[in-house]
Design a protein around this nucleic acid. Structure first.
Length: 215
DNA sequence: GTACAGATTGAG
DNA sequence: TCAATCTGTACT
């Protein structure tokens, strides 16, 4: 039933993963309820060379150590003292590369219209993510993972109903190349020439991308 | 121990 | 345009 995305997907070049993550479904299970969102915006952070990366110059600290895990793990940290930032590691263990998930299009009847996950901080707040997810393995976790499609969505329900399915609508999972927009990354102007790299990717004209620099 | 910046957000 | 808010990191 569930088709979790496997390790091989993540253990690849970061720029490839960052683009192919667009259109994938992030599933978060909280008790019996599931929250699902389609990834519509990402940013790539590439290892010791990338001045904007927390692993710049090979730095390893208590905060960023999970960034060095094998692809498919979560690296999460607190920013500005109040917002968590969800990153998905890529490449082999020891390579500190990751993809920052910046925005989700909520899937489900009620949330569908609201921009509750349009921004890296909002997204973590919506999904209830925090430090306890640092190092979590998306390939094995029972509380958060990714899927290629979301044909059947279970949504929060009254207790007396076993569960119900929201429509039978199937969403396409792959975003065509022509639908992917690449821009410079947000909030890292201090990174010199690295700040200019077009390593932010989002789905063209999608209303759920984060507020800044929308099309 | 103390200082300070930061991969943000929402209100004004 | 700006303040909220606090951890990690660098320095004394």
């Amino acid at each position: 039933m569930e088709k979790k995305i496997k390790r091989e997907f993540y253990v690849r070049p970061t720029l490839t993963v960052a683009q192919e993550l667009l259109g994938k479904y992030l599933v978060r299970k909280i008790g019996k309820k599931k929250l699902v969102g389609k990834i519509v915006e990402t940013e790539a952070y590439i290892g010791p060379e990338d001045r904007a990366s927390h692993a710049y110059d090979g730095k390893i600290t208590p905060r960023n150590k999970t960034e060095y895990l094998e692809g498919g793990h979560i690296y999460i940290y607190l920013c500005y003292g109040m917002y968590w930032q969800l990153n998905i590691t890529t490449e082999k263990a020891g390579k500190p590369e990751c993809v920052l998930v910046r925005a989700l299009e909520p899937i489900g009847e009620k949330e569908r219209k609201e921009r509750v996950a349009s921004g890296p901080g909002k997204l973590c707040r919506w999904l209830g993510l925090n430090k306890s997810f640092d190092g979590e393995d998306l390939v094995k976790s029972k509380r958060i993972w990714l899927e290629d499609s979301c044909g059947r969505i279970r949504v929060p329900r009254p207790k007396h109903i076993k569960f119900y399915v929201l429509g039978s609508e199937r969403y396409s999972c792959a975003i065509k190349n022509s639908q992917i927009v690449a821009t410079k990354r947000i909030g890292i102007d201090y990174a010199g020439t690295w700040a200019k790299k077009p390593w932010r990717f989002y789905v063209k004209e999608n209303p759920f991308v984060s507020r800044k620099l929308v099309d």
